[in-house]
Design a protein around this nucleic acid. Structure first.
Length: 891
RNA sequence: GCCCGCCUGGCGGAAUGGUAGACGCAGCGGACUUAAAAUCCGCAGUCCGCAAGGACAUGCCGGUUCGAGUCCGGCGGCGGGCACCA
């Protein structure tokens, strides 16, 4: 036993050896950081102070943190602590994405008010996060359900409204019949609600829309400047925005239908107009409705298209189906007539809801034409093909070639033919060249209680009126009834009844609340001045934004990140921000996975219900704890409650401590890949924390004081003693390599370098051969202090504990110390090991002094017995020497 | 279908075109212990060989190079994203 720090914990049996008592140490250092306000920064940093804003995606307060959070926040904390040590003023805040449906479900199921449920969850999760020892500035904390936050959000929405970025629009929406709410296109996955999993229906509703499409060109182009974003995220956003160049072409109907004289299509291939064989419209298109009104069979087909959900389309292998309406259109160039079909593969939401079919050069059109016996006329000739014989069989020709069978376009390549066709269309007023976008405007109306009220008032006389500034925030009523289905705000007896701010007559408050993605689209800006009575204070956001390093899951690659990028632009347009891009650097972490286990009857088992053993063949086997029921070890997959392959971070931290959990999660693999959580891996990490403590604790008695050590290391003896130089080289190599690894997010490599360093320190405890004990003592102090400081971003508590043992007279916290600097001069060794190759194959290694001449190196290499055997007396034609690396002899 | 990414021991992974497998996990042998745990020392890609040493090895086939896990071309497999997008 050493001292009070290592005294045994009464609640757990302690081994006899002195051990690091994390249960006592971790809260103590958390308190010390808090007392010294180590992680606080001003809203407006002093001039010239280098700022660094580290942000992890804030959590939804479900009640408990999970391993994904532990990984996310550990990664962010490593960056924050490292950047702080590098002299940056680091802002590292935390908050809560606190609106959303689960709170309402809890209210319905348990009768707990959403606010009460949410704030209780937040309190618990805050405690859990605090136990992780994260270097967060808790004074900036807020929840999006705080009226102080959503009230400012309402101000933003009103500013956006004045800027023409908020509209009320009657539109087809995705209706989730389980959640009883509208979903954005982005929130519909395979035709099902992203949260409820229910089959989504099409419904026409008046709803609030944010005009994200106004920024579509900019959101796309600016991706090019995001050089610290993962390429794949940029690609996903680019695909989502979906820019395509083409033409809108108007086809005159041979006979007007219900007073309509023409149909407009969008095409990216106006060069293939001469290869047209039909025109097709979506089932929701007015022409389809017109056909349905005339013909029961057409009506039947339209109904079939509507009912055909995505899942069925998948089952049917996306079979192309159509119905000939009997309507005819005239070709803008030739005047020839073509049939108008209703086709199940034409989407009303994309382009104009109508296409012209050119089967020879579009696979989907070709499949359709073959099925219904429509003509196939090739109009683009592949290079080297013969115009007289070229024909399209089962495969459409979609590459570049030369236009033929195309009148005035003949002889042009695809690009030139596109231009030629558009010119001709524009000249005769039959069409225009256009850019089309896949991105839709963002419908934000949700028919729910637990969200930010959209601050408008409906007056029968004055129309939609914004809520006056003085009346903000529009607070959610607290007395709400969840017993009825639908929106509780709409049912509330009094809440929605207000006077019109314009004429004073009775009017109705908007009862829709915001999509929760709105809340998370600007929280990063609010953190800069979280208590301000405006959405953001200009000086604070100008000083801190953009976020220098944002960290979160890849699952937000499109939705959240695109919405935030839009919000930055909208906030700039309304004078709130100066920056357009909110996140200068983005890192997307992988998931945390775990083995899954099944009992004999096929039920899923939690990891803690299972015992493991190793069979005679060396294979792992498992049985149910407290019995011998066999357990099947299943796949390693993402932790999920349904598979019960979860591990509770709270239990891990209680058992091993926060540093162990952090260390393991960082050590396992590169942070952008999925990692596997294993019990043996955690145990290994725990062993290392104990080992570091033991090394420090056992060696500290041999160490000179910090002042004496500095004197020793600058004295001549330190420069000559071999063991001293070796240890110092290991120390400074560790500084260099750990620093490089942290800079590149290679945290698993940083961990490996620290293991190597610890191994080197232990090897120096009992150096073989001659050594100068005094000089080595100085090097040992330097090494141990460096070990503490280099490991601090990953294991901050242990680092403080080690530091306090090494420097008991110094009040500094490691959290406040600068990062160690590597002395490159100390890295130079006296001799190097060179690989000796003959014809590129390794035959020997030789040890040569640094600075040895090439002649002596070649001589030493050729003298090696193995090398001589490989050369076998043949003349050496070429000698290659890569200094410090390799010698290669070519015979 | 299109677009990305990946493929290295039993496992996670490391490796500026220069000794492949660092470091860890799991494993094996030994020391300490009455015993266990903890800890410490050692072994460890595969095959041949007593050994010295050799052959084969980074999904497969080829190429560039004195030298390829790394660069180039082709093929295969796995994973992810998007998708009747006109």
């Amino acid at each position: 036993m050493n001292d009070s720090i290592t005294s045994p914990d009464k609640t757990a049996p302690e081994p006899a050896a002195p051990r690091y008592n994390f249960r006592a140490a971790e809260p103590r250092w958390q308190q010390a950081w808090n007392d010294r306000a180590c992680f606080s920064v001003p809203d407006v940093p002093p001039d010239g102070a280098p700022k660094y804003y580290v942000l992890e995606m804030f959590p939804y307060p479900s009640g408990k943190i999970h391993m994904g959070h532990v990984r996310n926040y550990t990664l962010g904390d490593v960056v924050a602590r490292y950047k702080r040590a590098r002299g940056h003023l680091v802002m590292h805040p935390m908050g809560w994405d606190a609106f959303g449906l689960p709170a309402e479900n809890a209210a319905r199921e348990r009768g707990t008010h959403p606010a009460k449920w949410t704030y209780a969850n937040i309190a618990n999760m805050r405690d859990e996060l605090k136990r992780m020892g994260l270097s967060l500035e808790w004074s900036r904390e807020f929840a999006t359900c705080d009226p102080e936050y959503y009230g400012q959000q309402q101000k933003l929405l009103l500013d956006f409204w004045k800027a023409g970025l908020v509209e009320r629009r009657e539109s087809w929406v995705n209706w989730d019949p389980v959640d009883n709410t509208v979903l954005a296109n982005e929130q519909v996955i395979d035709g099902r609600g992203w949260r409820s999993g229910a089959q989504v229906e099409k419904k026409k509703l008046a709803q609030w829309v944010l005009a994200i499409t106004k920024y579509a060109p900019d959101l796309l182009e600016a991706l090019g400047g995001l050089d610290r974003w993962p390429e794949r995220v940029k690609l996903m956003q680019s695909n989502w925005i979906g820019r395509s160049e083409g033409a809108r072409v108007r086809f005159a109907l041979a006979k007007p239908v219900d007073g309509t004289a023409e149909v407009e299509v969008f095409t990216t291939r106006p060069d293939t107009l001469f290869g047209m064989s039909f025109l097709a419209v979506a089932a929701e298109h007015p022409l389809a409705a017109a056909a349905a009104a005339r013909d029961a069979k057409a009506a039947e087909f339209v109904a079939e298209c509507r009912s055909m959900g995505t899942s069925e389309a998948v089952i049917e292998q996306a079979e192309k189906k159509g119905f000939d309406t009997g309507f005819r259109v005239k070709h803008p160039f030739t005047g020839a007539e073509y049939p108008v079909w209703i086709a199940n593969f034409v989407l009303m939401e994309y382009g104009t809801g109508a296409i012209f079919g050119c089967p020879a050069h579009d696979q989907r059109d070709l499949d359709f034409a073959r099925k219904y016996g429509l003509s196939v006329t090739p109009v683009v000739l592949p290079k080297g093909a013969d115009a007289a014989t070229f024909a399209v069989a089962d495969e459409a020709f979609t590459d570049d070639g030369t236009a033929f069978n195309s009148g005035f376009l003949d002889g042009l390549d695809v690009a030139a033919a596109k231009r030629g066709a558009i010119d001709a269309l524009e000249k005769q007023g039959a069409g225009t060249g256009v850019v089309n976008w896949r991105l839709r405007d963002w419908g934000v109306s949700r028919q729910r209680y637990w969200g930010c009220p959209i601050p408008f008032i409906h007056c029968d006389d004055c129309g939609v009126q914004p809520v006056p500034d003085a009346e903000l925030p529009v607070r959610l009523p607290e007395d709400v009834d969840f017993s009825k289905p639908g929106n509780p705000l709409d049912h509330h007896p009094t809440w929605k009844h207000v006077a019109c701010p314009n004429c004073g007559k009775p009017a109705r408050r908007e009862t829709d609340t915001c999509d929760t993605f709105v809340d998370s689209s600007w929280y990063f800006a609010r953190f800069c001045s979280p208590r301000a009575d405006v959405p953001v204070t200009k000086a604070a956001v100008d000083a801190w934004l953009p976020v220098d390093q944002y960290i979160g899951g890849i699952e937000h690659a499109i939705l959240h990140l695109l919405y935030s990028r839009f919000f930055s632009r909208a906030m700039k347009a309304t004078g709130h921000l100066t920056v357009e891009e909110p996140f200068a650097g983005l890192f997307t972490q992988g998931m945390v996975q775990h083995e899954s286990y099944k009992g004999a009857d096929g039920r899923w088992l939690y990891p803690e219900e299972v015992d493991f053993s190793v069979t005679a063949e060396g294979l792992r086997s498992a049985t149910l704890k407290g019995g011998n029921e066999p357990v099947t070890i299943g796949r390693v997959e993402a932790m999920s409650k349904s598979k019960r392959n979860t591990v509770d971070p709270g239990a891990i931290i209680a058992k091993y401590g926060a540093d162990t959990a952090r260390w393991f999660i960082l050590s396992d693999n590169p942070p952008d890949r999925d990692m596997e959580w294993t019990e043996s891996g955690v145990a290994g990490a725990y062993r290392f924390t104990q080992r570091v403590f033991r090394i420090v604790d056992e060696m500290r008695a041999e160490l000179p004081s910090p002042e004496l050590a500095a004197t020793i290391l600058s004295s001549p003896v330190a420069a000559t003693d071999r063991a001293t130089k070796e240890l110092r080289r290991a120390t400074h190599r560790a500084i260099k390599s750990v620093t490089e690894a942290l800079e590149t997010f290679a945290f698993n490599v940083a961990v490996a370098r620290l293991y190597e360093f610890a191994n080197a320190i232990e090897a120096a405890r009992a150096p073989s051969g001659q050594f100068d004990a005094v000089a080595l003592g100085g090097a040992k102090r330097e090494a141990l202090e460096t070990l503490a400081r280099l490991s601090a971003p990953m294991m901050p508590h242990l680092a403080e504990e080690a530091w306090s043992l090494l420097c008991p007279d110094h009040a500094d916290l490691v959290a406040l110390l600068p990062w160690p600097e590597a002395d490159l001069a100390l890295l130079v060794a006296e001799s190097v090991t060179l690989a000796v190759q003959v014809l590129g194959k390794l035959r020997a290694t030789i040890e040569v002094p640094v600075g040895a001449s090439e002649e002596s190196i070649f001589a030493a290499a050729e003298a090696e017995e193995n090398v001589q055997r490989a050369v076998a007396g043949k003349p050496i034609r070429k000698r290659i020497h890569v200094p410090g690396r390799v010698v290669n002899l070519v015979v």
